[in-house]
């Protein structure tokens, strides 16, 4: 997994609450058996005026000039600013894959849907929670300041505005550790093989029906 340490990145605002994973990456692209290549289809229904299908040349499609991602000032954005309950809906990890493939490295929102939040950490993507008032302020500053960039420091757990105002964010110690070191948590779990095996032995005795065939 990609490490996340520090980033100073251009911010793109998605000013809607409850942005769902169907909006982040529509279902037709979930037919892929690969992990990469979803970037051109991030927010596909909002980003293009025509209907997209897998295998199309997305560079040839009609773009929606009103959608924020298509505005030249936000080209190359690495930080996505969002509203409450971002990533609600399905468990598709294609949503963080699409954000990552597009170039987004961090998200800032007042809250996230649980599964999406969890999936981000598995892909080197940092979802930062800041309170509503702060997020409101960042939206205002992003919209009124062309080229608005935020500096994110995972070790210090801070987001710093171009004006030097610093906001602290909370993150679970384990997630921070994995993200900062780019660790694959399967490898970490497999350090506990003995405990998993001991658990299985005990449970097979206590509740053998849990180990029935399938």
């Amino acid at each position: 997994m990609k490490k996340f340490e520090k980033l100073t990145g251009l911010v793109v605002p998605i000013d809607r609450a409850n942005v769902d994973t169907d909006a982040i990456i529509p279902k037709q692209y979930l037919k892929s058996i690969k992990r990469s290549g979803f970037g051109p289809n991030l927010f596909d229904d909002w980003r293009y005026l025509d209907r997209g299908e897998p295998g199309m040349d997305h560079g040839q499609r009609r773009i929606n000039p009103d959608f924020v991602l298509n505005q030249p000032r936000y080209r190359g954005a690495q930080v996505l600013l969002a509203r409450d309950n971002f990533g609600c809906g399905s468990s598709r990890e294609h949503a963080p894959w699409a954000l990552d493939d597009y170039g987004i490295r961090a998200i800032i929102a007042p809250s996230y849907a649980d599964i999406f939040f969890n999936n981000c950490f598995k892909n080197g993507l940092l979802p930062i929670v800041l309170d509503r008032a702060t997020v409101d302020r960042l939206f205002r500053e992003t919209e009124t300041t062309p080229g608005y960039r935020l500096a994110i420091d995972l070790a210090a757990q801070t987001v710093t505005t171009p004006g030097g105002v610093e906001f602290r964010f909370e993150i679970d110690a384990f997630r921070k550790h994995c993200l900062a070191n780019g660790l694959d948590d399967i490898g970490l779990t497999l350090q506990h093989i003995g405990e998993i095996e001991a658990y299985e032995v005990r449970r097979r005795r206590e509740a053998p029906w849990l180990f029935g065939r399938s």
Binding site: S91, R92, E93, N119, F174, T189
Partner: peptide, 23 residues
């Protein structure tokens, strides 16, 4: 019972476990 992402699907295949924080 709960939904998981593809990385966790792989984690369950490989370890029969998940690293979770209680809700």
């Amino acid at each position: 019972a709960f939904g998981i992402g593809t990385s966790e699907v792989e984690h369950v295949f490989a370890t029969q476990c998940l690293i979770l924080k209680k809700s």
